[in-house]
Write a protein that binds this DNA or RNA. Structure first.
Lengths: 337, 337
DNA sequence: TTGTATGCGTTATCAT
DNA sequence: ATGATAACGCATACAA
């Protein structure tokens, strides 16, 4: 059983006091050249490394950030998490991940993060807690950065400009002459879905086209099938000539049904996908994509968090915005009629 | 500034000794009913929760597992990570994630995990360290579970049966009359690529078909393009009539080129994708998929780790295997000729 | 049965 | 400039 080496061992080996070792290693206080050298030699020889946990207990700095998200398997969230991990790692922080799809679990995880004295929480929870008194994040003493949620309480946030993005995608389709455009996005329970609908409606309004909710698919649960909904839409007197859909599940469900019905893309149906490129590349013809800029999103997220931890955030909360890129493929065509 | 409450506060409030509080909470040693009640009341009243870090320092149990992987953004790895997180969470463990694509970083992360006194390491590193003396994981005192890598040193491992899976996919294509089958998989540097090639070759051999390396694409880096390689293959005297390709990037690159060349799937080219369903659903016609069973993989991984932590692993290392599912879609057809 | 005291490995605050 | 020592918050061996 190889014993763990501590400051004590180093101090003994160097023939100095325990406190001196600490002072040399942390460059705090005075240390003569000779002492410094003796300590460093001993450290080198013994391969000493200060214990993180003990240091944490003493200083209160865990150098760890908690990342709470609904589901790691979601490719967009995973892409964001991946970038955040890279950036925090580079800044000397570790990431403790916790997935939660229930309010009770949100609460548990926040309590857990606090109990572990993490230094901050990055979260894109699956509920927006309209009542701040009831919000696990609002009641936390830890710095919190919220990703793409409109919480009841004001947090440092990174907000994706879904409305603008959808406006952009819609304007593109409208410019191709489409007037019946289906929308397949996530539930209105959360900001991403809500904002997308707003952008969609705004585009319609400014083009003078009536909003028809029969062209909208915004399921509250994942159980419902986007395919069935697409089938319904195709039965309408005036079926959609274009669709905008969140990738990959909703998009694929809808598209399959359309193709089974004999529709050609883009001749009979123009398609815009929403998400990250890597998971949408399988589409043929190459998909026109409203691309989620997860790199920018992660970068801003980490920036907000590190600023907050360092204490040099400006007063009040900051809300940063992230734009969408519209990547033109070959899945959209001029409307037939 | 709200002060943190400690055992001391609870002891004071309950009018008992500090040690008694601990004993009651950990159910260790004796405690009379009246004492237990007084302590529990005080705990309740103050909302006391034992500090994780202090407990960790004292007991040596961090209840945290490190998860080292190449890239969180890889959908298959993310799916596995997601399941592992769910299962470890349920068992009372947290997950500290670290991504690494370099040997030096592997080493750093292992050292880091050890320094933090994590209780184990789950890893699917991007290098297999043929020399155990040089392997960061082999030199670690922590329990290690390796996922789908053939390391130079023997570890508890979960191994995906790529060879069997490929054999299965190949036999399917061969039964449809294909004799020129292209293979697009990851580098032979790692087990997944190597084993797949072995299965591929075995199937050819038993069918009495000569191996033609011009039909193989196994890039060592991600810079090369699968599309260009596909273009080369299509120029051969006897071009492939079927391909098996890792999703999503390799697969999409190859397929796009084929389609641009006017080939119809499955009429002119049969296709089998490898990966998880959710990212492959965008294919049309519905893809025949060699499905990675990440649920089983994660379940076995966590099992191995928890057993090892609990100390009730059988002597020696355990190597568990995971099968592939071949999910039949409509992307394969009888060979034209 | 309960209280006291020591140690986990640090860092920080004192004296010296 | 350096050494001794307390404290972080807890668990535990030992004394009472």
């Amino acid at each position: 059983m190889t014993q763990r080496i501590s400051v004590r061992d180093v101090a003994d080996a160097a023939g100095v006091a325990i406190g001196s070792v600490s002072r040399v290693l942390n460059q705090s206080g005075y240390a003569s050249e000779s002492l410094r050298k003796r300590v460093m030699d001993a450290v080198q020889k013994l391969g000493y490394e200060p214990d993180f946990t003990a240091r944490h207990l003493r200083t209160g700095h865990s150098r760890t950030i908690g990342y709470l998200l609904a589901n790691i398997a979601n490719p967009s969230l995973a892409a964001h998490l991946s970038e955040v991990e890279r950036l925090t790692q580079a800044a000397g922080y570790s990431l403790l991940v916790g997935s939660s799809e229930r309010q009770a679990r949100d609460r548990e995880l926040v309590a857990f993060f606090e109990n572990r004295r993490l230094e901050g929480i990055i979260a894109s929870p699956s509920f927006e807690y309209p009542d701040p008194a009831d919000c696990p994040f609002a009641n936390s003493k830890l710095p919190v950065v919220i990703c793409d949620r409109a919480m009841g309480h004001d947090f440092d946030s990174v907000l994706i400009e879904h409305a603008k993005g959808l406006r952009r995608a819609m304007d593109y389709l409208l410019s191709l002459g489409h007037r019946r455009i289906a929308l397949f996005v996530s539930s209105a329970n959360l900001r991403p879905g809500r904002e997308k609908l707003i952008g969609y409606q705004a585009a319609l309004a400014s083009a003078g086209i009536a909003y028809d909710e029969r062209l909208i698919y915004m399921p509250n649960s994942w159980i419902e099938s986007s395919g069935e909904s697409m089938a319904e839409m195709l039965k309408l007197d005036e079926p959609p000539t274009a669709i905008i859909a969140l990738g990959t599940r909703m998009l694929s469900g809808a598209i399959h049904v359309a193709r089974e019905a004999g529709l050609d893309i883009p001749r009979d149906l123009s398609v815009i996908g929403i998400g990250i490129m890597s998971t949408l590349e399988l589409m043929y013809p190459p998909l026109t994509v409203l691309r989620y800029n997860y790199e920018a999103s992660a970068q801003l997220t980490v920036q907000l968090m590190l600023d907050r931890i360092a204490g040099d955030s400006p007063p009040g909360v900051r809300k940063l915005q992230v734009e969408w890129d519209l990547v033109i493929g070959r899945s959209c065509a001029v409307a037939a009629r």
